[in-house]
Computed example of a mutant assay.
Amino acid sequence: MGAGSTQTTGTGTADLLAAAGVGFGDEVIVPSYGTTEIADAVRALGAIPVFADIDATSYCLAPASVAEAMTERTAAIVPIDLFGHPADVTALQALAGARPLPVIPHIEQRPSESAGALQRRRSNAAYLDGRLTGVLTPRTAPGAEHRYHSYVVRVPGNGRPDRDAFARALRARGVRCSVPVTTPVHRMPAYARDMTDALREVRLPETERAAEQCLALPVDAGMTRRELHHVASACNALGGLLPYGVAA
């Protein structure tokens, strides 16, 4: 297997894993916060998806958790650029050291977009950043460039019950919103059932917390300032802000 990083999308993940020599019985470290697409691609090769936790800021694989999940059977790492925030590929590559361990980032497939649309989304995100007080707004890791495919906030309070009630209240006020990840992959029956005893004991606190608290708000490039103001006003009317660092 050759070391390094190659970006891939969709079904190309399985092809690149196979090209890197990943096969039956190998372990591939993947995130649980997201869809089953990557874990499915790993299993299609007869390999074993090993779930690592996410970073609380980027929602991408946390290098420290990946390091803890690595074993002699680890054959590759597949991070995902989630919601438009890039994974820390450099830090993940550094984990391999002298070992030839490929890092194969999976990029969400999306229609091509103009630079103007991207800038407008970022501008809309900045507008909400400066006005939202009822939720915890997204943060971008130092040096990273967020594309805001989704504007994902955290609803402070009592986890999933409060987040779901918050979402219902927003929808009643005409605000489009969605829960980006309802069930982490490692909690899905098809994966939990097939895990070995060791993998079944996996603890992913940031993944679980994100699944319970996160909500995606609209920042479409075509939104008007009036529409964005309505989103902010509706959110702010529903609750107060918990400062970062306070346990939810």
Rank of each mutant, 00 (worst) to 15 (best):
G130V: 08
L217I: 12
T36R: 15
V179A: 11
V153P: 05
I77M: 07
D220K: 02
R73P: 02
P63F: 01
A210D: 01
E108I: 09
G157Q: 03
A20S: 15
V202P: 06
L92F: 03
L215C: 10
T183G: 11
R173E: 13
C177P: 09
T90M: 02
A44P: 01
Y59N: 04
L101P: 01
D15R: 14
A98G: 01
V153W: 10
V135D: 07
Q93W: 01
S112M: 00
G222Q: 11
L199K: 02
A126C: 11
A216L: 05
L16D: 11
A64D: 13
Q7A: 03
D197C: 14
V185P: 03
V202Q: 04
D220N: 02
G239K: 07
L118H: 13
A98K: 01
H146A: 10
G2V: 09
I29M: 04
M70Q: 06
L228E: 01
S65F: 00
V153L: 13
E201R: 15
L45H: 01
L128Y: 05
V179I: 15
R43V: 07
V30P: 03
A62K: 08
G46V: 03
P156S: 15
T140Y: 11
T11G: 13
R226I: 12
Y33N: 04
R99P: 01
R131T: 03
P218S: 12
S123Y: 08
L82Q: 05
R209M: 12
M195V: 06
R43N: 04
Y33R: 02
N236K: 05
S58V: 10
Y59T: 00
G12C: 15
H186L: 08
M195N: 08
R193C: 11
A56D: 13
A3T: 03
L215A: 10
A247F: 02
A98R: 06
I38C: 09
T11P: 12
D40A: 15
T74D: 06
F24S: 13
L241Q: 12
V153D: 09
L215H: 09
G4H: 05
A44Q: 14
A169S: 06
A126W: 13
S32K: 01
L45F: 03
T35I: 02
F24Y: 09
R226W: 08
T224Q: 01
S32H: 08
A64H: 11
L228N: 05
M195P: 01
F51H: 05
A247C: 10
L170D: 07
I77Y: 02
G245Y: 13
L228S: 05
I107W: 14
L17N: 02
C60I: 07
